[in-house]
């Protein structure tokens, strides 16, 4: 029987009211503590937004942001190393769709490895997605140093 890996990446979610300076104050705290943001994305409702970060040290980020009274939580997402070539995203999304897995959100950043990108994925059934992508031979990362 095949080993199912549980390789997932820690993502930080931060709640912010939609007003000037909130992203600045959060990123200032990360900066002051020497934390590197690998990728981030903002989703907003008009009045508030949630900022999602992938950083090099998730635990330290949570600690520092909490101390500064930010409302933050930790979520598991998929960090998938993919070839930086035409058709790569199609291949992944087709596999997910064929298996009835919905992508809730996704964002990406260029990997330190040449010609590779890291795709951050949140899926309706995260465990199933991890199993599937591992089976298909994708490299899933657990941290983003």
């Amino acid at each position: 029987m095949r080993m199912v890996t549980n390789k997932m990446l820690k993502q930080i979610t931060l709640f912010a009211e939609n007003k000037p300076g909130r992203l600045a104050s959060a990123t200032k705290i990360l900066s002051e503590n020497g934390i590197n943001i690998r990728a981030f994305t903002i989703a907003d409702s008009g009045e508030f937004g949630i900022i999602r970060f992938v950083v090099d040290d998730a635990d330290a980020s949570l600690r520092h942001l909490r101390r500064a009274d930010f409302t933050v939580s930790e979520t598991k997402v998929i960090g998938l190393e993919m070839p930086d070539t035409p058709g790569a995203l199609w291949e992944i999304s087709r596999a997910l769709s064929d298996n009835d897995i919905n992508v809730d959100y996704a964002y990406a950043y260029a990997s330190a490895t040449p010609n590779k990108a890291i795709l951050i994925l949140q899926a309706s059934d995260l465990k199933k997605a991890v199993g599937l992508l591992t089976e298909l031979g994708f490299h899933l990362i657990e941290s983003s140093p």
Binding site: T13, S45, F48, T71, S73
Partner: peptide, 19 residues
């Protein structure tokens, strides 16, 4: 109302549904 850590979801839709 204030968002608590246990309420905070990475899916913005969940927060909008709460509202």
């Amino acid at each position: 109302i204030e968002v608590t850590e246990s309420t905070l979801s990475d899916r913005i839709g969940a927060l909008m549904q709460l509202e």
